[in-house]
Design a protein around this nucleic acid. Structure first.
Ligand SMILES: [Mn+2]
Ligand SMILES: [Mn+2]
Ligand SMILES: [Zn+2]
Ligand SMILES: [Zn+2]
Lengths: 135, 135
DNA sequence: CCGGGAATTAGACAAAGTCCAATCTTTACC
DNA sequence: GGTAAAGATTGGACTTTGTCTAATTCCCGG
């Protein structure tokens, strides 16, 4: 859950990412709490102690982490992307009132009857979003 | 599939919407073809014959139609919302390369193991998005 | 300790969507 | 049909999320 600086360095290196100060700060924000955060929240949390990371670097880094498979994007709100440090297949419960996003374990939810894909196409992922709100 | 002007007037009235010229044009765009369109595409199609609908009205109207249950939003691409004239429960196949969005009938796809909701919460909808791409 | 490639940055830019106050339509009523 | 109030539309300013660029700074192998 809580990684040391050295463990984070190792994690980035294992994914072919040079461990700069800013990237470690952002990795720390993402992997120390297991929440779903938007870019502006990540920027604010990274700069909580000392402001040393720019908006451009946060976006560069999130896109890099996503491309290298360290994190994934969750598309539930047209206004912002959420970043998920859990890249294992799983699903989401989205509270449309509060914006709170929580996980549903992949094993808990069974899907049957997946469509046959056109030839030459592969499934990149199956996202299930359960949208809930106060009665 | 193809509605007459009078049928569209009736459809809007039935949902408590005053049938103005612009709203009928937008309804025609949405209901004459059964595709998933983004706001800018709807604006372009509505103004294909005569440019008489503004961007503000397109957004006002799409939000009104959505609030009154005539259409629904599909959130698959962080860059734009798609509007779906089919409000029956169903799911989506999204080609991440081309941006093409197609329907999966609700009956074809079974989901079991839905989580128990916290008390006072109701499910607003369950969206399944199958993301596909070229091999 | 250098030097060059990689990373970071401020701020300009782009695109999607909202808001506003002025103007125009629709509609209910006579 | 004529009228007026309520409702709808509009251009353009504004906001937000995210990208891009060129200048600067950092990092690391030799
Ligand atoms: Mn720091
Ligand atoms: Mn947006
Ligand atoms: Zn998650
Ligand atoms: Zn659909």
């Amino acid at each position: 859950m809580s990684y040391t600086r050295e463990e984070l360095v190792e994690l980035l290196r294992k994914h072919g990412i040079a461990p700069t100060h800013q990237r470690l700060e952002i990795a720390h924000v993402l992997f120390s709490r297991c929440e779903h955060l938007a870019a502006d929240q990540i920027l604010a949390l990274a700069n909580e102690r000392f402001a040393e990371t720019s908006k451009a670097t946060v976006y560069n880094t999130l896109n890099l982490f996503r491309d290298r498979g360290l994190i994934r994007e969750v598309i539930v709100d047209p206004k912002r992307v959420f970043y998920d440090p859990n890249t294992e297949p799983h699903h989401h419960l989205y509270n449309v009132d509060s914006g709170e996003l929580t996980d549903i374990a992949a094993e808990d939810l069974q899907i049957s009857g997946m469509p046959v894909l056109p030839p030459g196409m592969v499934t990149e992922g199956v996202d299930v979003i359960v949208r809930i709100r106060a009665l």
